[in-house]
Amino acid sequence: MAEHKSPRLRTVEKIKPPYPLNQFPAGFGVNLGKEIVYVLATKNTPEIAGPEWEHIFANCVGAVWKPSNVGLDDIVLGNCAWSAKSIKTSKPHTQKMVRLISGRNSPSYSYDQKNLDVDPQIIGDLVLEIWNSRVDSLRAKFSHLRTVVLIKSKDLTELAVFEFETVLYPLDQFVWQENEEGNLEGFHKATKIHRFTWQPHGSQFTIIEPVPDDCLLIKINKPPRLDKGEVLKTLGYEDSWITVTRRNQTKPTL
């Protein structure tokens, strides 16, 4: 009888990501800067966040923007998926820590835990279990799961960008306690570092992440604003492009 052999499996470790963690593709910084220059030249308010940042990042790495309900896999490139976060601060290039709002984890909804006035450790563990469940479900679909963070100045002329692995958090490595505001804070047992905050009212879950020393720094010279009239003139705009009606009318309103 032939000797039984175990099948060769493709493990996560053997499946390479699109690029090494936090080592963005060639030209990424310039392409991102170009996107921001366009924003500054065309917007009344210098702001990017949410879906716009997701879309910009996807364009810069050649990925596909696919907004999801979970919010951890809005950007997809092959076997890798990203969640994109952005925060505003006065000095992005020297920021040491970021607070990332990471969904609403409700023990009341997910575990029917109606009484929240119990041992903070019980509630904190449930909060992390909800997070871990989301991450675990996506790890089954993607070999690599990451979070990309944009730290931006108020005027968008100074940026810092980094990414980190979106991971599971072992419950036994964190201790939870209530702060003066009535929110729960999770600390890493070994280092005593504050890693999470959870708010009972609204169930908002925040992850506190250190900014790596090798994060990408971008400085942008503020471009002149495009003149609206000149843009419309260049487009060859005519009033005939616009049709205005009322619901109870069939003919256009002048």
Rank of each mutant, 00 (worst) to 15 (best):
A2K: 12
K5F: 08
P7R: 00
P25R: 01
G27F: 04
G29Y: 00
V30L: 11
N31L: 05
I36V: 15
Y38K: 11
Y38F: 07
Y38D: 11
A49S: 14
I56H: 02
C60L: 04
P67F: 07
P67N: 07
N69H: 08
L72W: 08
D73E: 15
I75V: 15
I75C: 03
V76A: 06
N79Q: 14
K85D: 04
K85Q: 03
K85I: 01
T89N: 12
M97L: 14
R99M: 08
S102N: 15
Y111A: 07
D119K: 04
P120D: 11
D125M: 03
D125A: 03
E129Q: 14
E129R: 13
W131C: 00
W131M: 00
W131Y: 02
K141M: 13
T147M: 02
T147V: 04
T147E: 07
V148E: 02
S153V: 03
L159D: 07
A160H: 00
V161W: 02
F162S: 00
F162M: 00
E163H: 05
E165A: 08
E165W: 03
T166P: 10
Y169H: 12
Y169S: 04
Y169K: 08
P170H: 09
W176N: 12
Q177D: 13
E178I: 13
N179L: 09
L184F: 11
A190H: 10
K192W: 10
H194E: 15
W198A: 04
F205N: 01
E209I: 12
D214K: 05
K222Y: 11
L226S: 05
D227I: 03
K228T: 06
E230H: 10
E230C: 07
L232I: 05
L232Y: 14
L235I: 09
Y237K: 01
D239C: 00
I242V: 13
R246D: 09
P252H: 00
